[in-house]
C-alpha cells in the first residue's frame, strides 16, 4: 500500500517524465546488483545530485531487489560467461590489476552478471518507463482521480502520514 501510494504520488506530481523514468532505471540497477559495491556509490551520487525522482527510485529499488532473488542464478551464469570469455580476457586482466578494478569487485560473477544485465536493460526500461508515465498521465490519471479505490487510498492513514511528511 505504501509503495503503491508513493508511486501514485510521484505519478500525480509535477515531476517530469524523464525524472520519473530515470528513477525507475537507476532503482533497477540499484536493486538488481549487490548493494555494497562501488558502482552503487556512483548510482547514489547520480540519484541525489541529478534531479532524479526519489520516489520512483525507491519503489523501483524495492521491486527489483525482490526480483533479484529470482534472477540471481541467471545473473551469476551470465557473469561467469562474460568473465571467462576468451576475447575479453585482456581487458579483465588489465582492470583486475588496478586498484579501482579490485575495489569494484567486478570479478565476482554475480556483480558482473547483475551489472551487465541491468545496464543492458537500462535504455529499454528508461524509454518504456517514460512512455508509460506519459501514457498514464494522458489517459489514466484523470480517470484514476475519480476512481473510488484511489479515494480510499488517499483517505487512508498511511497516505495521510505520507502527505504530512512531504513525501
Amino acid at each position: 500500500m505504501y509503495v503503491f501510494a508513493k508511486l501514485l504520488k510521484a505519478l500525480h506530481s509535477d515531476a517530469g517524465p524523464w525524472s520519473l523514468a530515470f528513477g525507475i532505471m537507476l532503482g533497477m540497477i540499484f536493486g538488481l546488483t549487490p548493494l555494497i559495491k562501488l558502482h552503487n556509490l556512483i548510482i547514489l551520487f547520480l540519484v541525489l545530485f541529478c534531479r532524479v525522482n526519489l520516489s520512483t527510485f525507491l519503489v523501483s529499488w524495492g521491486v527489483f531487489s525482490v526480483l533479484a532473488y529470482l534472477l540471481d542464478p541467471l545473473m551469476m551464469n551470465l557473469g561467469e560467461v562474460i568473465l571467462t570469455s576468451e576475447s575479453l580476457q585482456g581487458i579483465w586482466t588489465s582492470f583486475y590489476n588496478t586498484g579501482f578494478g579490485r575495489l569494484s569487485q567486478f570479478y565476482n560473477t554475480l556483480t558482473m552478471g547483475s551489472l551487465a544485465l541491468s545496464l543492458a536493460l537500462s535504455p529499454l526500461v528508461l524509454i518504456a518507463s517514460r512512455i508509460l508515465v506519459v501514457k498514464y498521465r494522458l489517459h489514466v490519471m484523470a480517470w484514476m482521480d475519480e476512481w473510488r479505490v484511489l479515494q480510499v487510498i488517499k483517505s487512508s492513514r498511511v497516505y495521510q502520514m505520507y502527505q504530512s511528511f512531504g513525501g
Binding site: 551469476m76 580476457q89 590489476n97 565476482n108 552478471g113
Partner: peptide, 15 residues
C-alpha cells in the same frame, strides 16, 4: 565461503 554470493574469478596478477 564466498561461493554462495557468486563465484570469484581470478585473473593473472601482473603485480
Amino acid at each position: 565461503k564466498q561461493r554462495a554470493e557468486g563465484k570469484w574469478i581470478a585473473f593473472s596478477d601482473d603485480a
